[in-house]
């Protein structure tokens, strides 16, 4: 493979990693602070994408659509939290898994009913719709570069929020010791709502910026959710820093794996065999990575202290 092609794959990997981080950040915070395992986090991503496409169709402006979609995603997240999830915090993980699975079934089907089963598309905002000239004969879509940039900025903001503000301090304390935080006289209910709403909005945001490059369809969040789980398990549950590093790692391993493993196999296998085994191995790569990390560090790369 040529260097430029490799560069493109690396950029693709970073872009996937950044999206994964936006999803995993909320997932890992919600789990870290509330001990709540939320399978419905992936549908928040889907909803974010659908709402952006829908509002874009209504208004014709990407920024307005984005803002409306974020607000709607936040409201939906808070509604779910108030009416369903808040009753599940003190239940065991099995109950949480089942109830949030019910939410997935409902929202995936609702998206199908509301917007139809065929995938939807939307263009990138006009100023970023062009391509970036990497070499003489190679271009890379500006919007994907923008996603990487936006993701890194959000990661920085998050880092600032979590390490430098009072709410962030409470969140970190909550992730390592929830009882202590409530002993400090903090309104835990409200903290949970803030964290949950924020996580839902981040996932919705990921969906919104992904809408121009992926096809928007029911169930689009499901597979990404599982990958986000892989990310937070590798990174250490409850750790934002771990989620960031693991997200980039998973994004890169997955993208590079898919583009190189078959070629590498061809070096010492029959081409037909390589074509057969390569894709299977490539789709296993991130799980092998996870298994390897867990084998050496059962609580992930950056375990949040005291968290399970």
């Amino acid at each position: 493979m040529s260097t430029t092609l490799l560069l493109i794959q690396i950029l693709n990997g970073l872009q996937l990693g950044v999206l994964l981080f936006l999803i995993a950040a909320g997932l890992t915070l919600v789990f870290g602070v509330m001990g709540f395992i939320n399978l419905a986090h992936g549908v928040q991503y889907m909803i974010g994408a659908y709402l952006t496409v829908w509002f874009y169709g209504l208004t014709g402006h990407f920024m307005i659509a984005l803002i409306l979609a974020l607000a709607a995603a936040l409201i939906l997240g808070l509604l779910l939290e108030t009416f369903i999830f808040s009753h599940l915090y003190d239940r065991d993980h099995l109950d949480q898994v089942l109830a949030t699975f019910g939410v997935i079934l409902f929202l995936n089907q609702a998206a199908k009913v509301l917007w139809g089963p065929t995938p939807l598309n939307m263009p990138a905002p006009e100023i970023l719709a062009g391509s970036f000239q990497i070499t003489e004969n190679l271009q890379y879509p500006l919007w994907r570069i923008a996603i990487i940039a936006i993701g890194l900025i959000v990661a920085l903001l998050l880092w600032f929020l979590v390490t430098r503000t009072r709410v962030g301090m409470l969140v970190r304390a909550g992730a390592s010791n929830a009882e202590m935080v409530s002993a400090l006289g903090v309104n835990i209910r409200r903290l949970f709502m803030v964290v949950f709403g924020f996580g839902a909005m981040l996932a919705g945001f990921a969906g919104a910026i992904a809408a121009p490059i992926y096809s928007v369809e029911p169930g689009m969040g499901d597979d990404l959710l599982i990958t986000a789980f892989v990310v937070i398990v590798i990174g250490g549950i409850g750790s934002i820093r771990g989620a960031f590093i693991a997200a980039l790692l998973v994004g890169l391993v997955d993208t590079l794996g898919r583009s190189t493993i078959t070629d590498i196999l061809k070096l010492f296998l029959e081409p037909s065999a390589a074509n057969q085994i390569g894709p299977a191995l490539a789709s296993m790569a991130i799980y092998v990575l996870m298994a390897a990390v867990l084998f050496f560090k059962p609580s992930g790369l950056f375990p949040a202290k005291g968290a399970a």
Binding site: F31, G35, I37, H93, V97, D223, I226, F229, V230, I232, V233, I237, Y287, M290, A291, L294, F295, P298, S299, A308
Partner: peptide, 19 residues
């Protein structure tokens, strides 16, 4: 590999192996 962990990690790891 999975049984080295418990609780929510076990849920996620078995989920990942399933995938």
């Amino acid at each position: 590999i999975s049984l080295r962990t418990t609780g929510v990690s076990f849920i996620m790891i078995t989920l990942a192996f399933g995938q």
